[in-house]
Design a protein around this nucleic acid. Structure first.
Lengths: 208, 208
DNA sequence: ACGGTTTTTTAACCATTTCTGACAGTTTAT
DNA sequence: ATAAACTGTCAGAAATGGTTAAAAAACCGT
């Protein structure tokens, strides 16, 4: 999600969380940054009645910063096993004050995030369900690098996709079936593989 | 939108744009940052078929940064008359390298933006039209400060609201009428005033 | 391998929101 | 002053996506 900052791993407390463990919640005092060392996490916000929006996924190398607030403003939950290094907020602040490079790296990472969030605003506000899912699949596919048949992380459930895309699980399921019928993807168990990235890209660019 | 950085106004070229002038486009090389001195701007992304999503509005004091990309990734258009100071990207980079304070200020501003964008993801992905409009009105109202009867900037058209909220002008129009019937807001010409912020907040928190 | 639980898929139906088109009110141009 | 253009409002038809319900598939512990 953000840029790698290897210097962080050296100090700070290492912690491990198991599947589904919520290690950061919206009302928790924001005292430490989390640097993901292994595994993944889903980041989300919820409404009082249970509606959930996934903000993004964090992977190895990403940093979940304690934003300039007294409390975190989203929650984070471990996917698979998760290893993080906790960096105390004051420690990070000191680093930013003394090392311009570190601060610039954080700024760069924050701005990368802004760019991707702007794209997601457009997606959630103006794209159809079909376009959103195609975008999502392509985005996930590129994460894994080319030549690997474009798999989607099997730890991401239909409910996760729905909460990421602002849809319901039923709609996601329906569209995946449609994509399968159209030979755009293949499905075996939970695993999804992209068969025809070009036609998926065409869906994103100009809807039918 | 972002935090004020008064040091920027001192140098850099001052430019003025008139109503509706698009001074920044998605495919333009990102060579300068814009520091808003007076007036306002709408920031948006568009799809090839014309669908538009407003990313946000920029007001006096806000900085529109050239993100770490070769091109801007959204467009910006003047509302009313707009005065900006253009700060060349290399100049800003140098400032960030030499002054840790300046870099920290930019980082802080970027992170503030991230927080508000996360909230907007939740809004666009999971809230109803009614909740979105109530949220928007309250957000606009607080901009102006309390005690002023909570006006909404009349330069923001129905189409702007729709493109900000991921709705159509008709839906916005209908909901404004509904809010008016329910005595939540008053309307005279284009001007909107919030009459009952508490009940609007109730709509945001728990829908009916 | 078995039984129970959870997740995913499918289908029928429904609702919110969009789309289309018409009209009224305002502003701008002639 | 009148016409033209734009913006906002309203109403009905259409559609996308949500809701509900149930079956099928996958998963898990024993």
């Amino acid at each position: 999600m953000s840029l790698v900052q290897p210097s962080l791993s050296s100090d700070g407390m290492k912690r491990t969380f198991s599947e589904r463990q919520e290690f950061m919640t919206e009302d928790m005092p924001a005292s430490t940054h989390f640097h993901v060392v292994a595994g993944g996490a889903r980041l989300f916000k919820s409404l009082p009645d249970g509606r959930r929006q996934i903000i993004g996924f964090a992977h190895k190398g990403d940093v979940l910063p304690a934003y300039p607030c007294t409390r975190y403003h989203y929650s984070a939950e471990a996917m698979r096993n998760l290893q993080v290094v906790c960096v105390p907020a004051p420690h990070m602040s000191r680093l930013h004050e003394t090392s311009p490079g570190a601060c610039a790296a954080s700024l760069n990472s924050a701005r990368q995030l802004l760019v991707s969030l702007h794209n997601r605003l457009l997606m959630l506000g103006r794209q159809t369900a079909r376009e959103r899912l195609a975008t999502f699949l392509l985005g996930q596919g590129t994460r894994m690098g080319p030549g690997e048949l474009w798999p989607v992380d099997p730890a991401i459930s239909r409910a996760d996709m729905a909460d990421f895309l602002g849809l319901t699980t039923e709609t996601v399921s329906r569209l995946l079936s449609a994509f399968h019928r159209e030979q755009l993807i293949s499905r075996e168990r939970r695993a999804i593989h992209i068969l025809d990235p070009d036609r998926l890209r065409a869906i994103v660019a100009h809807p039918e």
